[in-house]
């Protein structure tokens, strides 16, 4: 194998790479925040007494989970202008990832809601709390704690999906990696470093989540 390792050209571009992964994290945080709020609404809708609301919720989840995220991104970025709605790259990507995330978060929260024992809701009713307050003080706190592991897994998954923004030229890490790849031809080095950056980032997120779990997750009584 005639390959001379030379990391210098890549390391020269270190600030670029860092900004790339920073942007990736930002995209992930914003999209997951929006997706979580949406997902929570859908999760509650999936348990509503109204049958149409329930069907709507399940349809939402089913469609978005079965679509490749790349198709959603391209549809929003290239397809929407045809309807007169022109979004810039980053906004399209955030909308796409938020919608995608909402379906996954809805599933996470649905599982969380199911894990809240009916007895606790009744205990809240017995002391005279309204159903809104029961949700606010009892159901939601418990649901979040129980759903944290699943939430964390999805968080990491969605963070990795931010790499797809590179396909519409959003300046995140993968985009810069491709650029450096074509400029320097230091193929192994650049992809090694890019992968490493993602892995380290995912690991860091895992550590944060694990710390949160230790503090918050409820032990079974």
């Amino acid at each position: 194998m005639n390959y001379h390792f030379n990391f210098a050209p890549i390391l020269d571009q270190w600030p670029l790479l860092l900004s790339g992964i920073g942007l990736g994290l930002l995209l992930a945080l914003v999209s997951i925040a929006i997706g979580s709020v949406l997902g929570l609404v859908v999760a509650f809708a999936s348990r509503a007494p109204n049958r149409w609301l329930r069907s709507l919720a399940f349809t939402w989840i089913s469609i978005l989970r079965n679509l490749p995220i790349l198709v959603i991104v391209l549809f929003l970025f290239f397809g929407m202008p045809q309807l007169g709605l022109s979004l810039d790259k980053i906004t399209s990507f955030i909308v796409a990832l938020s919608l995608y995330a909402s379906a996954y978060m809805a599933e996470v929260f649905r599982g969380g809601l199911l894990s809240v024992p009916q007895g606790l809701i009744e205990a809240g009713q017995a002391i005279g709390l309204t159903s809104f307050r029961i949700k606010r003080y009892i159901v939601l706190p418990i649901m979040f704690r129980n759903a944290l592991p699943a939430f964390g897994n999805n968080f990491i998954s969605l963070f990795k999906d931010t790499s797809l923004a590179a396909t519409i030229a959003v300046p995140e890490l993968t985009f810069y990696a491709r650029k450096i790849n074509s400029e320097t031809f230091r193929v192994i080095e650049v992809w090694l470093i890019a992968s490493l950056l993602y892995i380290v980032c995912c690991y860091a997120i895992t550590l944060v989540l694990r710390a949160m779990e230790k503090r918050l997750v409820l032990e079974k009584t």
Binding site: D161, S163, T174, A177, I188, A194, S195, Y198, Y203
Partner: peptide, 17 residues
Amino acid sequence: GTPVLVLVLTTFYVSSA
């Protein structure tokens, strides 16, 4: 820990290298 896209691109470029 690696995004699939990075995996695809890595395999593609590194294999030829």
